[in-house]
Design a binder for these strands. Structure first.
Length: 422
RNA sequence: GUGGGCGUAGCUCAGUUGGUCAGAGCGUCGGGUUGUGGCCCCGAAGGUCGUGAGUUCGAGCCUCAUCGCUCACCCCA
């Protein structure tokens, strides 16, 4: 075993796929309940799409993208998030012309070249949800409620924090106020904040350093600088959340790592994932569709981190073993195996799960395999049985066995195996 | 990119100040039952102790390098 998986890329082994399926199933079901339709988009796009939408100066674009030159020299990138691709498809296929609000979700792998740690991989999976074409605050609240409902139906808890980042009308004033505030604190700030101050002042507020945090306590709040429209929008969002009895906390320090956000942003946080607090996050991006060459339509979306959900789920008790099901054909000898493989094939054709041994193992060994596989029945085919045109059908749960004529209607056996364990 | 921790059997891990130290449990395979699973009993296979140098009479253990994993910083789902 010399070749291993790429750093930060993980195999999801058979033991784990059941949990994953559960997460995916619940996610699809809940989101569908809110009227979202699935869209599947490529995992690779032209690099410019991400650079333009996520923001040239974000960490993601600056240093975390898997970018390659295609054979013809074109720069391609493995998607670091889902929104850009979905919006590209939305614009490309003019989906806005089909209905007033286009509600889409997609589910799949994303790629970011970061240093892996708990709850953070280079290939990770997200449920990405977008609602395009409406700017009503009710929609914002509903999306948060939907994210919370996915968690809830998985039996998980997370706290909701919300903020408003304003719009192109009110943001500049806040930026000026913030810069002015930072100007006379300049000496006291950490190196990172020095950098952020010049690059993207908003991000300063997100600093985890306690020294910086102390200073920012007096920093101007974006919420005090919202224009009337944004302020009204945000207030309505809060009212709607209250109406749905969704608990939330306003965190005016919350800043997102992608440049395209406007107005409402939110995060679903947990303290059970090590340093990775966010299981889900999103926000409104009202200028983005136009920026990508589409119509001037508002939009809002969020993503849930699937491995983070799986991780949270894994911290609780494992699910009980599934009940016995299916049939194992235990054939003894070459002739019997020939009969067995034919039988197995016909039974599978009737919807029965059938497994068998290929190595000519002893009956004992085959019984063991059947037991390990959780088979409900074993059909034993040996010389004695074959001579009589029968098989010996053993019920692994009751340990009772009876001879079963091979000439009988297979449907009878199929039905019996299929309904066992239900 | 920066820092900490860890690399011994397929898995989880013991290995005392360097001197039978190559081990246990689980798993796998076989036997106990010449054709009957789970439980139990017995046995077996399986490891260049991540890799490479060095120190030493002697290194799983010490030193250095290197690779990998992991956690954290940064950032994010």
């Amino acid at each position: 075993m010399h070749i291993t998986a790429i750093k930060g890329f993980k195999d999801i082994l058979p033991d784990e796929t059941a949990v994953w399926r559960r997460v995916e199933t619940v996610a699809r079901e809940v989101v569908g309940r809110f009227g979202f339709q699935e869209i599947r988009v490529p995992i690779m796009e032209k690099t410019a799409l991400f650079a333009r939408s996520i923001g040239e100066t974000t960490d993601i674009v600056e240093k975390e993208m898997y970018t390659f030159a295609d054979r013809n020299g074109e720069s391609l990138t493995l998607r670091p998030e889902g929104t850009a691709s979905v919006l590209r498809a939305f614009v490309e296929h003019a989906l806005h012309s089909q209905q007033p609000v286009c509600k889409l979700f997609t589910l799949g792998p994303m790629f970011r070249h970061e240093r892996p740690q708990k709850g953070r991989l280079r290939q990770f999976h997200q449920l990405s949800v977008e609602a395009l074409g409406a700017d009503q605050p009710e929609l914002d609240a509903e999306l948060m409620a939907m994210a919370a409902m996915v968690l809830d139906e998985l039996g998980l808890r997370a706290s909701l924090e919300i903020n408003s980042l304003g719009c192109p009308r009110c943001r500049p004033a806040f930026n000026r106020a913030l810069l002015a505030f930072l100007e006379n604190k300049r000496e006291a700030l950490c190196d990172d904040c020095q950098r952020r101050r010049l690059k993207n002042p908003l991000r300063v507020l997100d600093c985890k350093g306690s020294a910086c945090q102390a200073h920012y306590r007096q920093a101007p709040s974006i919420l005090d600088h919202l224009c009337p429209d944004c302020a009204r929008h945000f207030e309505r969002v809060r009212d709607c959340l209250a109406a749905m009895a969704i608990p939330f906390k306003v965190n005016h320090f919350m800043v997102r790592g992608l440049d395209y956000y406007t107005r409402t942003t939110f995060e679903l946080l947990t303290d059970t994932l090590g340093a990775q607090g966010a299981v889900g996050a999103g926000g409104r991006y009202d200028g983005l569709i136009k920026q990508l060459g589409g119509p001037e339509l508002p939009g809002i979306g969020f993503a849930l981190g699937l491995e983070r959900l799986v991780l949270m789920l894994g911290e609780r008790e494992a699910e009980p073993a599934p009940s016995l099901s299916g049939l194992f054909v235990a054939a003894l000898g070459e002739q019997a195996r020939g009969v067995g493989i034919g039988l197995a094939h016909r039974l599978r054709g009737q919807g029965v799960k059938v497994t068998t041994d290929y190595a000519g193992a002893s009956l004992k060994s085959q019984m063991k395999q059947a037991g390990r596989q959780g088979c409900r029945y074993v059909l034993i085919l040996g010389d004695e049985e074959l001579a009589k045109g029968e098989g010996l059908l053993r019920d692994m749960a009751s340990r009772e066995q009876e001879s079963f004529p091979l000439s009988a209607e297979l449907a009878v056996l199929a039905r019996r195996v299929r309904t066992a364990g239900e």
